[in-house]
Amino acid sequence: MSFWEVVSAVLLLATALGVVRAQNAVHAALSLIANFLVVAAVYAGLEARFVAMTQVIVYAGAIVVLFLFVIMLLSAARSEAGPDPLPGLQPLALLGGVSLAAVLVYAVSRFQAPANPASLQGGLPQALGPLLYQPERWMYAVLLVGFLLLVATVAAMLLVEPERIAPPLSGKRPQDQQEGARP
């Protein structure tokens, strides 16, 4: 366990605590950005430089900024104020979180790493590209994920569309009547 591992572990846990405990939603989102930036630095140290860049651009740059937009759009920054409607939930959630952490730490502590792992070539795009775009490796998964992103974009547009005037529940719609009136 080196010095920088300890530093990044402390930073990661502190910022994660900020995400789950901050009273102001804007502070929670900013803590999440800090967490993601530390994670990106850790990725760069673990020979995953392309994923580190993607983490900064997509996660910290796009996703959390979208969160900040929505928090400010809905004026939800102070939404956690006021009395807690479910005070009994806190200790139960703490118990669940601690037991989940215990199980996961036990699971990873049983892992035995091989002595001399192969080099990852720094995780550069030159190394990842052939894996991503070979038909016998991950190409179809890439295509499916692209299609999923398209569907999600269309769904998000439909969800936030301004409400249309609902058609009457009984009787024909206007265009049906016009068609029926035509000789």
């Binding site: 929505v70 939404s79 989940l100 892992f111």
Partner: peptide, 29 residues
């Protein structure tokens, strides 16, 4: 190895937050 333990703790912290937060946006975070 340190990062495996850290990732387990981060996952548990996130689960705790998803259970206790009261606003949908913060559950999402």
């Amino acid at each position: 190895m340190t990062y495996l333990v850290v990732s387990a703790l981060l996952f548990a912290l996130g689960a705790y937050g998803a259970l206790t937060r009261r606003t949908a946006i913060l559950v999402f975070l």
